[in-house]
Nucleic acid binder design. Sequence first.
DNA 1: CTGAAAGCGCTTACAG
DNA 2: CTGAAAGCGCTTACAG
Lengths: 371, 371
Amino acid sequence: MQSITFISVAEKKKCQANSGESCFEGFDEQAGQVTKAFPTIQDVARVAKVSTATVSRALSYPERVSKETRRVVIDAIERTGYRVNQTARNLRRKQSGAIVVLVPNLGNPFFSKILSGIEATASREGLNVLIADTRQPQVSPRLIGEYLHANRADGLILLDGAIRPDLIPGAPDRRPPIVYCCEWNEDNDLPSVRFDNSGGAALAVRHLHGLGHRKIGHILGPGDNVLTREREQGVRSALGALGLEARSDWFFDGDFSLAAGARAAAHWLALEDRPTAIAAANDEMACGFISGLHRAGLSVPDDVSVVGFDDIDIAEQFIPALTTIRQPRSEIGESAATALIGRIRGGGSETSPEVKVLGAELIVRSSTRAA
Amino acid sequence: MQSITFISVAEKKKCQANSGESCFEGFDEQAGQVTKAFPTIQDVARVAKVSTATVSRALSYPERVSKETRRVVIDAIERTGYRVNQTARNLRRKQSGAIVVLVPNLGNPFFSKILSGIEATASREGLNVLIADTRQPQVSPRLIGEYLHANRADGLILLDGAIRPDLIPGAPDRRPPIVYCCEWNEDNDLPSVRFDNSGGAALAVRHLHGLGHRKIGHILGPGDNVLTREREQGVRSALGALGLEARSDWFFDGDFSLAAGARAAAHWLALEDRPTAIAAANDEMACGFISGLHRAGLSVPDDVSVVGFDDIDIAEQFIPALTTIRQPRSEIGESAATALIGRIRGGGSETSPEVKVLGAELIVRSSTRAA
DNA sequence: CTGAAAGCGCTTACAG
DNA sequence: CTGAAAGCGCTTACAG
């Protein structure tokens, strides 16, 4: 357990320069190890008695050094406890080793599984995940430009369709790869991974039709959202294909919130001629609608059938358990990360299609029943 | 709109070396601007006709340069579109400009508001937020060591009490600041920000007692969790203080999941002598318990009163709306980030107390009623 | 297969 | 108040 520490004059001088840092190099004779808080590639080279170039090569291109050298270097790395300094590597390689995810609202649990999928894929590929909430005032163009230009990110995943990187000033050719996930923006043709929103909405309508419902309403999402438009369009076209009426007073305004669902319930209650079934543009509004009816003494599915959209965690345990359209949230995160990483590594767009659509699935539970 | 581009031989040579990069410098005569994809501090210095040191100072210590110089430099920065390269700055300053948040399960929506609070505070302070899911196999000690040693992070927020940085090999004195958030680990005394778990649990019990309940049960969280222990202890001591019995068959095992709540409901149903009220260690289990009873044809609060813990989003819209203990999730995230940043900047621990406890609040809704 | 050397873009004592 | 120069830790053509 005894150890003798040698500090050379040169080392000492360095240490004093870096004031405030406990900087020293020790040589533990018994274990034969160099013990240093943050050994550098220089330390490894010294211990291995090779050049730093060789250590670097052994690390990045093991096949380019001899077997023997590789062994010696690996040994030295272990003895010193060396870890590559990513900042230095990144500066040299002009990369950042990170991708950034721009989320419209980090507080919204809908994004947690997507983030989880992104993170799992990125971390498997050795990339870090930076997150930023686009609602933060300082994010708007400042941070995005920062990320894009300040070598902060090798790529960008946008969960917010309202963000338009094509409008950011600066050379678009030098811009790192960008992939939209879930949402997208119709004003540009950046690659995107999305759910089949209109197909999912059609699934909901056909399910209700199959149960005998002929009067079907819809609660819309926020007006400025692509998902809102796609889901509404899916409902309308399915209705049309089935020869059913799309009555405008059966299309309730909403904004994806629980409260909007409750408001829709109030409107539904006020109707003369009520739809017998509702396809909501998301689960929160479906739950809000059900709660609203419950407070008014009515019950789902006895008085009206309700289908949600998203299959959020609570859908299954809600009372009644919610029939809904499941979207593979973790998978879309993985898929977006994979597409982005392909572009970062491959450079071209040939690694994956420009738009990838993930299928949605109907989950039948207890909030729908025969008319 | 016309622009003439000069490319010097030296520039050209550089460009060819950096193959694959569209590297050139142009001088737009009309606007009098240097247009370059990523202008460096050198370009700014050239345009401003000062040294790079002066540009750097004007940026980091504006008070150390003359007013006139400052003006010239700012002007040059604007004309070139310069943005600091964080990677280079970080290498030089031996910092990373980022904090990392280690989350036990990114897919769990409980963490989204906390993350949101952390991100808001960090981004206000100009720090990036890196996230990693500790369930990822490659995270365990590898990535943590990476973050700590590879200059990846200036500080660490641990949302997972199972992570024990004190066990990571390497010099603890060179370790960047670490703050636990929500959870903590009793085997070390790292600073932490936490909710008043036992106080919150006691609040729930006293509320039930106030409604006349004398037979009160508890659904526990997972066995190896500090929060589980704290909340159970809060229930037990409140029960004791009120002179009520803590019957072991009224303490149901759980794991914070909806399914565990449903299982507790089955156990409750099988009981000879049933508690008339249940304090669950979290909202998911409370909801699962209510669902379980609902399926068995019983109803809350008619047959049993239930209090949750956490006040997750759905609590308010659940049927019945859940009485619960609210914890300021966004606030705890802000608080943890503030504590961490204080330590990063201040160096010492004097910036904030070692343990900060945030009060919990009782939210009375419809899942509890008089016995 | 290996090493010497230049350089990524910035910051910061040091000297004036 | 300002500039010349060293250096953060790494990588990579280049030459051997």
